[in-house]
Structures are given as C-alpha cells and as structure tokens.
Design a protein around this nucleic acid. Sequence first.
DNA 1: GTGTTTGCAAAGTGTTTGCAATTTA
DNA 2: TAAATTGCAAACACTTTGCAAACAC
Lengths: 141, 141
Amino acid sequence: MALERPFTQALVRLRDAGLRPTRQRLALYKLLFEQGDRHVTAEALQAEAARAGIKVSLATIYNSLHQFTEAGLLRQVVVDGAKTYFDTNTSDHHHFYYEGDGMLSDIPGEGVQVAGLPEAPSEAEVERIDVIVRLKRRHRH
Amino acid sequence: MALERPFTQALVRLRDAGLRPTRQRLALYKLLFEQGDRHVTAEALQAEAARAGIKVSLATIYNSLHQFTEAGLLRQVVVDGAKTYFDTNTSDHHHFYYEGDGMLSDIPGEGVQVAGLPEAPSEAEVERIDVIVRLKRRHRH
DNA sequence: GTGTTTGCAAAGTGTTTGCAATTTA
DNA sequence: TAAATTGCAAACACTTTGCAAACAC
C-alpha cells in the first residue's frame, strides 16, 4: 500500500518557491490549494485557519499571501477599494463580482474575447486585461 | 452683447442635484467639469483646488465627491486597492490604467465588445462590465 | 432664524513595518 | 549556530464620522 505522505505536495511547492516550509506556510498552503479555485482576503483566510485550529498572525498571513503571489502561486484581484482579494487561479481569466456580498467567482479566460480596444500607447505595453462583471442579486418577489 | 453669467452652469447643475451651491461645491464642480473628462482622487482634487487658491477640507472633498456620485455626475473607478478614483465621464466606457504612475485614461465604450461571457447566474443581474487594460511603461532603450 | 454644510480632529479600516523572540536547517 | 520567520504592537494611508462653528436661503 502507498505510504501516506502528508505535506509532501505543499512542502515541495514551498521549497520550489524558495520558501521555508514553516508550520504556518504549510497550513496556509493547504488551506489555499487543496480545494480547487479560491478567492480569499487576508482576514477570511485567518478566520479559516483559526477554524481549522491553526493560529497565524495577520502579519504572517499578509507576508505569506504576498510571498505566494511573488512566487506565482496566487494573483491579486482588484474589485473593491476596501480589501485585497487573492486568487488561487493564476491562469488568464476574468471575474464575476457580487457587489452586495463581496463574493468573487471565476470566468474562464478561454471563451472570452475583448474586441475593439484601441491600440495601447506605443510607450506602454499591456500587462493584462481584466474583465469584471459586476452583479447585483435580484430582489426576491 | 451676452451678459456674463459666471457660475450659471455649475449653479444649475448643483441645484438640479438637490445640492446647495456652496462656495466649495461650486469650486469643485468647476474644477471637475469645466475641462473635459477627468479622473481624480480626493487628495489630487484637494491639491488642485489649493493651487487654484481654494481651500477645501478633505472631509468636504470626500463629501462632495460622494454627493456628485450619487447625483450621477461622477462615477467611481476601482483599479487600485489603495485609493478611490472618480471619473467625470459617466457614460459606458472602459479604462487604460498605468500601473506605475496610477494614471487612468478612458476607452470609449462604443467600440468595445466583450464576447463569450457565460450567462450571469439567474438570481443575479449584471450591473456593469468593467474592462481594465493594465499598462506598464516600456523601458527606455 | 432654521436647516444645511463645513472643517477640524478623532476614529476607523485594511495593510505594512520594526524588532525581539522563536523556529528552521 | 546562523539565517529566516513569526507575532506583536506601533505606524501607515486612505476614508469616514461627530460635532461645533459658519453659511445659505
């Protein structure tokens, strides 16, 4: 039978990113990446860690989120002036954003085309094109 | 000859919006709307007012920007987690955003089509679609 | 005069930083 | 043990709020 190898994947990914696999980073890595695409804020992640019995300071949460982002494991999404969202899906894609409750969901990038954009000024280059579909929940009736 | 009617336009617009044409609001209105499309932050607008010899507190700047927004004269643009931009162009359009220097410029809405978006969930309705083309200034060479 | 608006200073929110104590290798 | 990491508390940037004084009508 296969040996159980807890942490193996997280360990390797952190090492690859040049980050020491500390208890906190391992825990956050697992929360973030072992359950499909996710969108988290620092506070939400801390709360989630707490629920899982892991106490991590907000400073460390922010540090880790930024380090993961630099390592290309996460990507920031700007949809709201107030808080920063981090997205575990780093591929080219877009977002639905529920204004009311601050929920984000992915729109795969493949299907979407943005046509008719003017040329970018020649002294600039396009970093990325973000499409944000802002949604409002319909009133019940 | 035509009488000079300073403030007339600003006065009327403010009245229409149900806002008393105070000295501060008149000054801000004129700065914002008497020179084509603009993108301002609260601080930038205060600085500009100061340069024009008008002293307005930041609190009043924020109040006015929000009141103008509620009145449909301005629209907020979210491109950066840190600060809020207000856009004097309230028509349907998109943006170039220069990551480096925080500059915004309009992309007219008419030409642009976004195709291939999935249907919005039925319990939600689309408020708006934002397209943000993020630009980086090219290195000189 | 009466209700509205202003501006200050204080409070608030989300995020970052400095640094001693702890942990990793 | 040397270097990296953590967590606290303080500092930050931007924005909002409470309230007395000033203003518009």
